[in-house]
């Protein structure tokens, strides 16, 4: 602790971490810095902040995209709720119980993780079209839940599988059903995993672009990723307004940031409090 080599080592590690942080954060800084530039400022002064700050990038973009934000938030919240709930439930069942067909069904779910997403893009589009889901919220929510629950299932499975059997024994002796066990013991303990799953699946739902692009054309259903792309479409070279584009991306990242800060606390606290240990 007090040895000079220790202190040296520690300051060196701080230095290293600082460098990593700087490099990792550069894109974020670049995005925010650029979001305050006018088109002309961007092309003439690329690497440094410029004055005057163009706050109007934000007001202009916000006016254009706030309905998309509502859509994205709604779709993400419902999808993530579904992903967490279904993933936890089936993960719990598979991890704590044995039943005929368990093994094959397990691999049936896990195997889906390896399907390249683009492979199923066109077939999946045809399916949702046959179901008449095109241009409804369901075409966004249901496939997200379906696809997202796979990873969720896997994480919950690992977590529930690692819990000691003793936790459940007394409940079983009291005659608690499967769902009761899930609700009172499994769900109660799994807050850290919920945080993890919520973050990971929110990211993928929120940032998805191609699926909403192909399945929704109704302006009222447009989500952020598609919306930002639409208003920033550049028809002429040298004229892409990166200032507005990045202002849009910055706004798009904000709701995610809120969720992230909230869920991370849960997640990290869970880790350090020892929920995953012993």
């Amino acid at each position: 602790m007090d040895k000079p080599t220790d202190r040296l080592l520690r300051s060196f590690s701080y230095l290293l971490l600082g460098i990593f942080l700087l490099l990792t954060f550069y894109p974020l800084w670049f995005m925010i810095m650029t979001s305050f530039k006018s088109l002309f400022q961007f092309y003439h002064n690329f690497w440094w902040p410029t004055r005057p700050l163009h706050l109007d990038n934000y007001t202009r973009v916000f006016k254009l995209i706030y309905p998309y934000i509502l859509n994205s938030v709604g779709v993400t919240v419902v999808s993530v709720a579904g992903i967490v709930f279904l993933g936890a439930l089936s993960g719990f069942v598979f991890a704590r119980f044995d039943f005929p067909g368990r093994r094959i069904l397990f691999y049936g779910i896990i195997g889906l993780m390896m399907l390249p997403w683009i492979l199923t893009l066109v077939p999946a589009f045809m399916v949702v079209k046959q179901l008449g889901l095109i241009d409804t919220y369901w075409v966004l929510i249901l496939p997200y839940i379906s696809g997202g629950q796979v990873l969720s299932f896997y994480l919950f499975y690992n977590f529930f599988e690692s819990l000691p059997e003793e936790l459940f024994e007394s409940a079983r002796l009291d005659g608690a059903g499967v769902f009761q066990q899930f609700r009172h013991i499994g769900a109660a303990l799994s807050r850290p995993v919920i945080g993890l799953v919520a973050i990971v699946s929110s990211l993928s739902v929120w940032n998805n672009f191609i699926w909403p692009l192909v399945t929704t054309s109704d302006e009222r259903l447009t989500v952020l990723t598609v919306g930002v792309m639409r208003f920033s479409t550049a028809y002429t070279s040298g004229s892409i307004d990166y200032g507005q584009l990045f202002a849009g991306y910055t706004i798009a990242a904000l709701p995610l940031l809120v969720l992230f800060l909230f869920a991370t606390r849960q997640f990290m606290r869970g880790l350090t409090a020892g929920a995953l240990k012993e």
Binding site: L89, F99, P100, L105, L112, T120, M126, V128, L142
Partner: peptide, 26 residues
Amino acid sequence: VAPLYGLILPTFVLLLVFNYYPAFLA
């Protein structure tokens, strides 16, 4: 066993429609 199947049913219905069938098609 029945309640176990009941609880994993929604998962598999969704997977069947939105993942297995398109994958099969592919």
